[in-house]
Nucleic acid binder design. Structure first.
Lengths: 216, 216
DNA sequence: AGGAAACTGGACTGTCAAGTCCAATTGATG
DNA sequence: CATCAATTGGACTTGACAGTCCAGTTTCCT
């Protein structure tokens, strides 16, 4: 089995940089134009690398795609991580919501898009995306668990389940926002998710505040 | 401008049948393998048509794609239409939910997938998908409006907004169910949507029944 | 019937994209 | 410095795919 993955034998500083440039360019293009509309020639031009460089660092297009997907997952997690790490109250969740809305370019979710865009051949890349989404959901779950241990969420609430629902709302909202070219779907979906969490909050005061989150 | 669309001058019974076969095959393949993985040769083989037939009935691939997208939208609306036409109560919404869950093949939404899969070049096809999703949302909205006029939904509830949230949950749930290869995300997302509607139901009895729809 | 138009088969073209190959250059290392 | 591995340029091969073309067949309509 040829090894062109992380366990590359040696890797010069320059080589590592080239490699990174290539992956970044692939991830950018895949996000911007879509996976199917991203050719290696495009990646070459965008990264300033040559054909032989691509095949020096990656076994084939699928391998590159896999790393691009991993980078995209990293980026998404890096964007939401700090906000989700701080998730320990409804107020913090509203902060997260505002950030997500501010981030929304009506272009959909770069990670969610891959669920539908990756060709069946790219099995590894697919797995990477699945793991990324699951990690994302896990971060939400952890935040909800913190809320619960702080006594903010009802003891019988199920953070794992709620996290699935919340991430579904976000993904669906992003998809519909892309389709409708409007922020409204995402806004409404996220507010539903907020209300869903708020409905399981202990303190009635905070709950009533959140149950009618009609923006403005 | 050449006309190969609906206003085709004349169309034999046989011709119309061939045309339909082609569109159906294209829609099937696009759903099964993805738009990017569907070549005209594939469509030829699946439909038993020849190259010249494809180009006799369609100006180019984008035109075919557009009709395939329209057919896919029709199919989805036809599947949900009867259930959504009957939507006039929480109970009816639960029936719809059960049907959607039963329909789920963990393959995502054939219509939602197109939002991410259609190439930017296929502008018309894109519009068709957007219209399809909007029509779907409209059907949900209409059902909620019926609930409202029946006095089941609070007078200040906004059916249009709720419909966006509900469809977001469905789309996100389907996407995550595809990724996770599990029905759970869709189930949890849909139950959240149900609770969201139930929260705006007048009769407290029905509401309490629905607010904890934890399946089983 | 018989001409026109719809329909069909299938070979052909041009383009583009993935992947290969080899020679040349740069850098690391003893 | 000598040597070897890492790195790079870029031409080349191969195949797939969208789209073209024309000749032949079937159907429609008067």
């Amino acid at each position: 089995m040829s090894e062109k993955n992380g366990s590359e034998r040696r890797l010069t500083t320059r080589g590592a940089a080239t490699r990174r440039r290539i992956v970044a360019a692939a991830a950018d293009l895949a996000t911007k134009r879509g996976v199917g509309e991203t050719s290696l020639d495009d990646v070459m031009e965008a990264s300033g690398a040559s054909k032989s460089q691509l095949y020096h660092y990656f076994a084939d297009k699928d391998a590159l795609l896999r790393e691009a997907a991993a980078l995209q997952a990293e980026r998404v997690l890096a964007a939401h991580g700090p906000l989700l790490d701080a998730l320990d109250s409804l107020a913090a969740m509203r902060v997260w919501r505002d950030a997500v809305l501010a981030l929304n370019r009506r272009t959909g979710c770069p990670l969610g898009a891959l669920v539908y865009q990756l060709p069946p051949s790219a099995r590894r890349a697919r797995t990477t995306v699945e793991d990324g989404l699951e990690a994302w959901r896990g971060m939400i779950e952890d935040g909800l668990a913190r809320m619960q241990s702080r006594g903010e969420l009802a003891p019988d609430a199920a953070p794992a389940d709620i996290a699935f629902a919340v991430l579904s709302a976000v993904q669906g909202g992003l998809l519909l926002s892309r389709s409708a070219k409007s922020d409204r779907p995402l806004e409404l979906a996220f507010d539903m998710a907020l209300a869903h969490v708020a409905a399981q909050v202990r303190r009635p005061a905070d709950r009533s505040l959140a149950e009618t989150p009609r923006s403005r």
